[in-house]
Computed example of a mutant assay.
Amino acid sequence: MNPIRYAVCALALGCLAPAWAINKCTDANGKVSFQDALCAGEGEKIEVRPSTRGATPVPPATAPVAEGAFGPTWQRKNYLQTQGIPQARTAIERNQRDCTAQPNTAATAGPLRRGNLPSGNQFVQEGAEKTADDKAACEARTESLREQLRALEREFADL
């Protein structure tokens, strides 16, 4: 048998032991003692059984610990005020600046400028579609950043 089986068997036998016998012995002088062996003189056998109840429950905490002057709430509020909200506003401004700075690819296409191409040309149509897609992506990104800013401002107001 391997060591794991020995451990499991020992654990099972230890749990199945129904009771232990303890002998209460009294000597000639009237002194009482407890022992595993049988008493030489007067004595009685006491059956001891393990408790079937669980462990003693831990009492609940009396009161929650008060947060100190520089506790987690203060730290979060300070972060939002000094870094979180200002950085969110800066991100919105940077995104808007980047969106307005994007060049119109259809107007500056090198030697193939808009004025050199006939109307209805595939190149001009693709450029207009790309510009519209870029503008929609910029607006979606700006709205996402604004929603993040609103969430940070709500959290700051709740603190």
Results as ranks from 00 to 15, higher is better:
Thr105Ser: 10
Ala136Asn: 11
Glu93His: 01
Ala69His: 04
Arg113Pro: 04
Gly71Phe: 06
Ala88Glu: 07
Ala66Asn: 10
Gly120Met: 11
Lys130Gln: 15
Thr90Glu: 14
Gln96Ile: 05
Ala66Pro: 11
Thr82Pro: 02
Ser119Ile: 07
Ala137Cys: 03
Asn104Leu: 03
Ser144Met: 08
Arg141Trp: 02
Phe70Thr: 12
Ala128Ile: 13
Gly71Ile: 02
Lys130Asn: 14
Arg113Leu: 05
Gln83Lys: 14
Arg76Met: 01
Ala106Trp: 01
Asp98Ser: 10
Gln81Ile: 00
Gly115Phe: 12
Thr105Ala: 15
Ala66Lys: 15
Arg113His: 10
Gly68His: 06
Gly120Asp: 03
Thr108Leu: 09
Arg113Glu: 02
Gln81Thr: 13
Leu117Val: 05
Glu67Pro: 06
Thr108Trp: 12
Val65Trp: 04
Glu139Ser: 13
Gly127Ile: 06
Thr131Ile: 11
Pro118Cys: 04
Gln96Ser: 00
Pro111Phe: 00
Pro72Trp: 04
Asp134Met: 11
Glu129Ser: 15
Thr90Met: 09
Gly127Asp: 11
Val124Glu: 06
Lys135Trp: 04
Pro111Asp: 11
Gly115Ser: 12
Arg141Lys: 15
Gln102Asp: 07
Arg89Lys: 15
Arg97Leu: 05
Val65Lys: 13
Glu126Pro: 01
Trp74Gln: 04
Arg94Trp: 02
Cys99Gln: 02
Leu117Met: 15
Pro103Asp: 09
Lys77Tyr: 03
Leu80Asp: 01
Arg94Cys: 01
Arg89Pro: 02
Val124Cys: 07
Gly127Ser: 12
Lys130Pro: 00
Gln87Gly: 08
Ala132Tyr: 02
Thr142Leu: 01
Glu67Ile: 03
Pro118His: 09
Val124Gln: 12
Thr142Met: 00
Arg94Met: 05
Ala101Gln: 02
Val65Leu: 09
Ser119Cys: 07
Trp74Val: 10
Asn121Leu: 05
Asp134Ser: 13
Arg97Ser: 04
Asp133Glu: 14
Phe123Leu: 15
Gln87Ala: 15
Thr131His: 13
Arg114Asp: 11
Arg76Lys: 04
Trp74Tyr: 13
Arg113Met: 08
